[in-house]
Design a binder for these strands. Sequence first.
DNA 1: TTATGGAATAGGAACGTTCCATTATCATGT
DNA 2: ACATGATAATGGAACGTTCCTATTCCATAA
Lengths: 343, 343
Amino acid sequence: MNTRRPTILDVARAAGVSKSTVSLVVRGSPTVKEDTAKQVREAMAATGYVYNRAAANLRKSSVGLIGLVINDLRNPFFTEFATSVQMALSAQGYATVISNSDEDGALQAQMVSSMIEHGVSAFIISPAYGQEAETFDQIARAGIPCLQVLRQVDPRGDLFPFATFDFARGGLLATQHLIEQGARNIAFVGGLEDRAVTTERMSGYLEALIGTGVQPTSFHGRATRAFGAEIAEKISRETPEIDAAVCFNDQVALGLLSGFARLGRRVGEDFRIVGFDDIEECNQVWPRLSSVDCDIAQFGRDAAAALLDWVETGQRPPALRRAPVSLAARETSLGIDPEGTSS
Amino acid sequence: MNTRRPTILDVARAAGVSKSTVSLVVRGSPTVKEDTAKQVREAMAATGYVYNRAAANLRKSSVGLIGLVINDLRNPFFTEFATSVQMALSAQGYATVISNSDEDGALQAQMVSSMIEHGVSAFIISPAYGQEAETFDQIARAGIPCLQVLRQVDPRGDLFPFATFDFARGGLLATQHLIEQGARNIAFVGGLEDRAVTTERMSGYLEALIGTGVQPTSFHGRATRAFGAEIAEKISRETPEIDAAVCFNDQVALGLLSGFARLGRRVGEDFRIVGFDDIEECNQVWPRLSSVDCDIAQFGRDAAAALLDWVETGQRPPALRRAPVSLAARETSLGIDPEGTSS
DNA sequence: TTATGGAATAGGAACGTTCCATTATCATGT
DNA sequence: ACATGATAATGGAACGTTCCTATTCCATAA
């Protein structure tokens, strides 16, 4: 089973040319005559040659590999993001290594270290909390470009450029919309307290509430469906006067939605919900979930482009970029239009 | 920015030992004296040394990298699978490269080729349809162990071992259960026609129907939420006598669920649904989705273990393994228990 | 003192590519 | 016939490890 793999040299012998020529053919250089190239290609097929990237990388400086580290791959928001980044990078001839830290800082540090050893040219990282220093110092020491997205946790804060969404404005839009829809008692649900990702969204929420007489309330916790469902119950039991919620993300909102469905409270009529991220599923539940639309696919493409610019031309992206957001209002906040059920 | 990275040789110089000794320390060999090892480690820290895996791989035969190719990473079923495999492999010191072919055979072939070049030691692949020959011939030519999971599409059919679930039995259990619950007109929903993944599930469904007088009906299409929702509408409009459905997977079932919610049909009472896979979300919607439980986490661990056995001891896994399934009955098939809303 | 042998360390070759500096080839103009 | 210059092809060094075969060191026994 383990006969030695043919190398560029075996191909060269078979084709009756030098190894340099084979190398040129492999890389599609235009300087080799078409006749020769064809012979070489035939020899490659005949010998069953496979390109050895490790050997090539040893000589070259760049590897064409980008590391993508995600903190929660079970959240569709991140899957959509990862998919979009991978597509954009592969269109430019880069391979993507996706890794899921699953909110485990130690695991993340270990994955980053392994990727550095494998010679990735750059990182896009939506970091987990914990072991920040270990994760980012490694990258900085190795001098590898790195784009931090969605969460800024690098210990010095200014080590790597950061791309995110305008979460504050999202919170503002969502809350204003709920007020316009007649909600009088709006809660903010989900997200761990004191994390920037949470406080930013909340700042918009709080701003919208100023002068309206509405009292802010918030329920903090992990951004999961389970937490959303739990809060639906808690609200029904303890603070039934709350009639609307701005959620940390769509996961929480969907949890809230099914929690209320279970309790028989009619979302869209008795209770209004706006989620955050606008994942595909928002359109696939009923009532459809209103959400702060983040155009995650575009965000992914932009991130990939900015990173490649950095890698290839040395053009470091701006330290901070906030992508705009908009509001996608659907049944959970507008109510259910008896006419409109056919679209 | 681009000063040459220190090598093992620089470390050796700094520590006053030979490069061989440094290499041994890097790999944690017990033959080097503790004093020396400590000096070397200090020198490594001082010089900012990072291990160059490409160079090591050039010399070693194995790389400790496993390729995981998934056909639809947006489906939570596969995300759960990928996460489980990655955990199991990383516990054994292997790194995992996850790639999403997104049901694109050409893309898949390209990803596989890139992974082979990067020197992965083995593959786990849940293949996309299309370009089967290209994908699998490459792997076979390179002599790399490969475990095919969930879908068997390799052109010769017996090229690589195949691990899957006992889908037929799942279809049988689901259908029998619906009959016991009093359903009289059970449809099979989702999955592309004439694909083994579909016909296997359907064979169980058809078997359960024998002698019951229930007429089989099926609606085929992509296994997405959108398709499920579409079929909910179609059933309501064209064949309202259908009172239950066995679904290709949970995505379809969840689509059906929200489709019916939208149309005001009460699932669990007027209409009974059983999904397939038992993803986490089954417990997080309301009514909770009954599903054929596949214990995907265990499946992932088993796949990882079988593959590593193959890689390390040459012990090729059995050509076919069907993991057992069971039924997780919940509200969408049992109906809503007015007492049981508190668990 | 001198063999002896095991533990610790050292040095050179090898891995399969790319890059660079050369050399061979060949049509063209004088 | 010869120089010219572009085009095509070549050979050797280099990349940073690991592996294998020495060599050195040192405690112990003769």
